[in-house]
Amino acid sequence: MATSAFNRAIETVEFLRLKLPLHLSKPRVAIVCGSGLGGLADTVNRGEGDVVETWEYKDVPNFPVSTVAGHEGKLIFGTMGAERVPVVLLKGRAHFYEGHAMETVTFATRVCKLLDVQTMILTNAAGGLNQEYSVGDVVCLNDHLNLAGLVGFHPLRGPNEEDFGVRFPPLSDAYDLSLRKLAHKSWKELRDQTPNQRRMHEGVYAFVAGPTYETRAECRMLRNLGADVVGMSTVPEIIVARHSGMRVLAFSLVTNISVLDPTVRADNPEVLNMTGEELEQYMSRGRANHEEVLEAGRLAAVDMQGLVLRIVSQL
């Protein structure tokens, strides 16, 4: 007997396919647009004869609605590249910290599977723990630390969704190696065509529940555990995508560099004679805020769009 989650996803897919033209009803690639990266939707073909179908999440049965700035909450079907690859873009996502259950956070991923998506490309904005990174750099993820999952908030917790995958899926191969090779090739082509200082790395993403940005001590802990970037999304979706048998490629845009220096002691001679305003300026160095995240995404938009377009065109 089908599970309730499976039934809800089937209901959503049936709603969409009743309204979609045939050539868009089975997208080959799904692209999740993270904070400030909604501009990826501009890579969809919009020339003469191209069809683009758009729904707001609130108008799609069973879809969770995001409440976060920079996540518009739109489902976009179209094609990309000269090869007209059918794609679906999720412009915004639901987050665990918004109060959603993990099953809700990953519902769109289940829908993608039932739409016959073969490859998911996920993007996010993240804090840079690796001090060799710069704001605006792109990180192709090759592994993760699921901190929330290790303490019980795991997207596969509960009865297994047998209609999607096995009870104990491996994750040692979660980040597809051939897709990462394609990403590096595409990035080199992009840089050869339009040189700039933005770099692409490979690294490990630490998933934390949020919504607070991490303390200095937490940042040092995560770095010591091997994380290169830290954020509040993506990993639950990746786990469910792999559980469902889809290939995964994921990118983090470094939107701030995390502060790893210990908090200054209040009896440190350096701060004893500072005014209240000077103390505030001293402690605010490196402090993350969501407005900076969105701005960094805006500035990186052209490079991210070019990268994703090149990758999708070769899938």
Rank of each mutant, 00 (worst) to 15 (best):
L147S: 00
A148Q: 00
L150N: 06
L150V: 01
G152D: 00
F153A: 06
F153S: 07
H154Y: 05
P155L: 02
L156K: 00
L156D: 01
R157M: 14
E162W: 12
D163V: 14
G165H: 11
V166M: 05
F168A: 13
F168S: 01
P170R: 07
L171F: 15
L171H: 14
L171N: 07
D173R: 12
Y175L: 04
L177K: 04
S178Q: 12
S178N: 11
L179W: 00
R180T: 02
R180D: 01
K181F: 09
A183P: 00
W187I: 06
W187H: 00
W187T: 13
W187N: 03
K188N: 10
K188V: 14
E189G: 06
L190Y: 08
P195L: 02
P195Y: 05
N196Y: 01
N196E: 05
Q197K: 05
Q197P: 03
R198A: 04
R199K: 09
G203S: 09
G203I: 04
G203N: 00
V204I: 15
Y205L: 06
A206L: 09
F207Y: 11
Y213T: 14
Y213P: 05
Y213E: 02
Y213C: 11
E214Y: 02
R216I: 11
R216F: 02
A217S: 02
E218K: 05
M221C: 13
M221D: 07
L222D: 04
R223P: 10
N224Y: 14
N224I: 13
L225I: 10
G226C: 12
G226Q: 14
A227L: 15
D228R: 09
D228N: 14
V230S: 04
V230E: 05
G231K: 13
M232Q: 09
S233D: 14
V235D: 06
V235G: 12
P236E: 09
P236A: 12
P236C: 10
I238K: 10
I239K: 13
V240A: 08
A241T: 09
A241Y: 14
R242Q: 14
H243L: 10
H243N: 12
G245S: 13
M246N: 06
V248Q: 13
A250D: 07
F251R: 04
S252E: 15
L253Y: 12
N256M: 15
P262V: 13
P262G: 07
P262M: 09
P262Y: 13
T263E: 15
T263D: 12
A266D: 15
D267F: 02
D267A: 02
D267W: 00
P269T: 01
P269I: 03
V271C: 07
T275K: 00
E280V: 08
Y282L: 06
R285G: 11
R285K: 14
G286P: 03
